[in-house]
Design a protein around this nucleic acid. Structure first.
Lengths: 302, 302
DNA sequence: TAGGTGATATACAAATTTGCATGAACTGGC
DNA sequence: GCCAGTTCATGCAAATTTGTATATCACCTA
């Protein structure tokens, strides 16, 4: 092998990659945790070393040159390989310490995780946990998280998934909200009720109608894509909201709204990257989460 | 994109790659033009950063661990991408200066190239030329050379090739060698003659027999895989040797050995990497070589 | 058994790279 | 038109990385 051809500074290549992707030296510096002057010099040095002008400096901003576009393509594949290096390294690491990022819904993060994480801290004090609560399916494959709690089965072969159990959800309301009716609600009351909306209210209405509730967009007066906020509004008596039984069980002031509306079932999946699952650190958290999330069920039953 | 996962030091990854491939820190240091302590520290730092033991240090030597083998795989693909970066960069570079490596046979390098390169130095003084004369087909794809002069058509789609012309070769001898016979040789003399051997004498004998010469291994008393050395022996009268007409034309003491043996024709191809051919520097040399090697023909005719 | 070769690790000084501070120039909102 | 917010480039001091020199160990040969 001719190693001479790869003796350019690989960190400068990384600087170029991130600058090209982020669009500016400053943004790249922020992304990499370096400073803008450093990136500026690294990119300039790479141009010098390769004998190619990568960016057109026009008006204090950067534009990729034609050559830059072509080179960015190849540097990107370096970056993808680097990403795999990092992934494999995390998987190979057998230390029970370091950062583990968990992705889940904000409601889960707020209500179910705290107890589980408290135990984890005792069991594995070297592990630092970072919870990113996002409703969108954060992509494990892009390493935005190490472990995700999902309610749909992942289909990508790179991912390792374990279905923990099915959980039940239903429509809840605060006692204070129900008091104004002075009686138990039935599905015939639906057109006159207030429902809390989430991100996609069309979809929500579809679900509700499937349950036999005659509701329209007009029944949704307040929405929040932040489920935690919406759930707080339910708790405060602004209206009815869909939630999981085991979450509601932790809120004494919230009770099932209807007697005659069936509960719906949804699965709880624990997902990680296949390569990461060999990591002792990741596996420790994975197994602990699995155990903890299964235990919640029995708690909810009592 | 999550850039956090690629913030390990890429140069350390390169250090690991070359160390793993070369088998030792010292060899890697030589290959990269760095020192052994530097490599030692870079590899150790990478192990620290990734939290993975890459090498087992046993008896002052290194053995890849299982994790190291797995990671080496991914780092290798980083290296391959880096190689493509370098290749593309060379291709994009529009400077008429820098190093160009030419691969050809030693005989070509010694007899045909000097004049051509002399002109090139005048035409493009900024270009530094390095001639690696090897008989084996040095792999352009591995960047061991930028331009190669070949006698077979390359078949790889990554390569750009131009067939310059056909050249003639035949069997030559020094006048001093022929004098001992006092007459013109014919193919019937073959069993009693001395032939110079090259690398693969079986193959050479096959060629000679195909020309109607009844020779065996016993006719080859002296061989050298270095064609230049063998040709020098022909010149000094040690025996007969196969050579190109245009080379022989430059050696007054060498003349065709037989009257009744036909000449054989072989093509001259100029080959470079497809991506490199867009480089002004490479192209300058490529075109100059093409022009020069075509001009040799008319010279030989006169 | 002695000596030569070749491997890795470490102390220390030199060289390089980095971050901070700053200046200049452009963009967009008011 | 002006001002706040961003951008990139550069001087300078601090931090990091590198190379040199050296110690140690293993292996092979005479």
């Amino acid at each position: 092998m001719n190693w001479q051809s790869i003796t350019f500074d690989w960190n400068q290549a990384r600087a170029f990659l991130v600058t090209a992707e982020e669009g500016s030296l400053s943004a790249a510096a922020r992304a990499l945790g370096l400073t803008q002057p450093t990136l500026s010099r690294q990119v300039a040095a790479l141009e010098e070393a390769l004998g190619v002008t990568l960016f057109e400096r026009v008006n204090k901003s950067l534009m990729l040159t034609e050559a830059g576009v072509e080179l960015a393509e190849h540097v990107r594949s370096m970056g993808e390989a680097a990403s795999r290096v990092s992934l494999a390294a995390s998987g190979q690491s057998q230390q029970i310490e370091g950062l583990v990022t968990i992705s889940t819904t904000d409601v889960m993060a707020a209500y179910l995780l705290p107890d589980i994480l408290k135990d984890l801290r005792r069991k594995a004090p070297g592990i630092e946990v970072r919870v990113i609560s996002t409703n969108s399916l954060s992509d494990l494959r892009r390493r935005e998280a190490d472990i995700a709690i999902r309610h749909v089965a992942p289909d990508h072969p790179e991912l390792y998934a374990r279905k923990l159990r099915d959980a039940n959800g239903r429509i809840f309301a605060a006692r204070s909200y129900l008091e104004q009716f002075g009686r138990t609600l039935t599905k015939h009351d639906a057109p006159d009720l207030d429902f809390l909306g989430y991100e996609d209210n069309e979809q929500l209405i579809g679900y509700l109608r499937a349950l036999g509730l005659d509701v329209t967009q007009a029944n949704i007066k307040i929405s929040s894509p932040n489920l935690l906020v919406a759930w707080e509004y339910v708790r405060l008596g602004f209206g009815l909201g869909v939630g999981a039984d085991e979450i509601a069980a932790r809120c004494p002031e919230i009770v099932p709204a209807f007697e005659d509306v069936p509960s719906l079932s949804f699965p709880i999946w624990l997902v990680t990257h296949r390569e990461l699952h060999t990591s002792l650190r990741i596996r420790t958290v994975f197994d602990h989460l699995a155990e903890g999330l299964l235990a919640v069920k029995s708690q909810a039953k009592t």
